[in-house]
Amino acid sequence: MRGLLFAFLGGAFITLQGVANSRISQDIGTWQAATVTQLTGFLMALLILLVVRDGNRQGLKQVKPLYLIGGSMAAVIIFSEVTAIHKVGVTFTISALLIAQLCLTFLIDTNGWFSVMKRKMKLPQFIGLGLMIAGVIILKF
């Protein structure tokens, strides 16, 4: 049961993050909002890191540099999401965002790009994506 609650709250927080960024960007600007929220989040995570100390310097050196800078994509993600929410609303933005996210993950998984474990996708995955796209079309037309 606790797992369910955490998963539910996690999803709620992800949406809240987009909404809060949109709200903040109305007052201070989109890049300002992205900079402030990432900075305060970073400081908070750093504080927790200093307590739990789960870092592993040797391990980090073995990670490809490309993967280490993955976090920088957040700047473009926040900018795009905030602008989309202002233009088409939260529901449509999150729906389209999830479809693109699942489609690309699906492509990467089936092709084994970025040396992820290759996974074969079957009919249910295609049906699932088809249903999601149909749902988004119904949402807007």
Binding site: Y67, G70, H86, Q101, V116
Partner: peptide
């Protein structure tokens, strides 16, 4: 708005993979 949301979703997918690594 649709294109921006799609771009954001694709980047989220990439970022998740990189972060997992």
């Amino acid at each position: 708005g649709l294109l921006l949301a799609l771009a954001a979703g694709s980047l989220v997918s990439l970022q998740n993979i990189f972060n997992t690594k």
